[in-house]
């Protein structure tokens, strides 16, 4: 799935790194606990979260993720968007709730990867 399709499915607003919308992604995870993201995900690409603080961006950086979706109309701060942009991570925001957003992406072929390393 292209990142642009995530934007379309979730009716999301892209906040940075639009040049990477053609990037193909194959897996995603949804969590508000960054330690769980760091523990359970492998070869992940997309993070869906309702948590808003700079450690969300850092976690994505550490995991080599390429896209972060903020759900429930949460908005990252300008400093967070800058951090993500510097690392080429696409950031978008949607009004959809976590359950609905994950369900829509899963139903359209973006699977989860709940495996330890």
């Amino acid at each position: 799935m292209k990142i642009s399709m995530i934007r379309d499915l979730l009716d999301a607003e892209v906040l940075c790194s639009e040049e990477s919308l053609d990037h193909e992604v194959y897996s995603a995870c949804g969590s508000d606990m960054m330690s769980d993201v760091l523990a359970y995900v492998k070869d992940q690409a997309v993070l869906l979260t309702g948590l808003v603080n700079p450690q969300v961006i850092r976690t994505a950086e550490m995991m080599d993720m390429v896209c972060i979706v903020f759900v429930r109309s949460k908005r990252p701060t300008p400093a967070m968007v800058q951090m993500a942009e510097a690392d080429g991570i696409v950031v978008m925001a949607t009004s959809k709730r976590m359950y609905e957003a994950c369900g829509m992406l899963y139903a359209n072929g973006l699977i989860g990867t709940a495996t330890h390393v």
């Binding site: 330690s35 769980d36 948590l51 450690q55 330890h116």
Partner: peptide, 16 residues
């Protein structure tokens, strides 16, 4: 509330 403190830090460090 900041997304940490799930009791996964040290186990993750050992795992990786």
């Amino acid at each position: 509330s900041l997304g940490f403190g799930a009791g996964m830090g040290l186990p993750n460090m050992k795992r990786y």
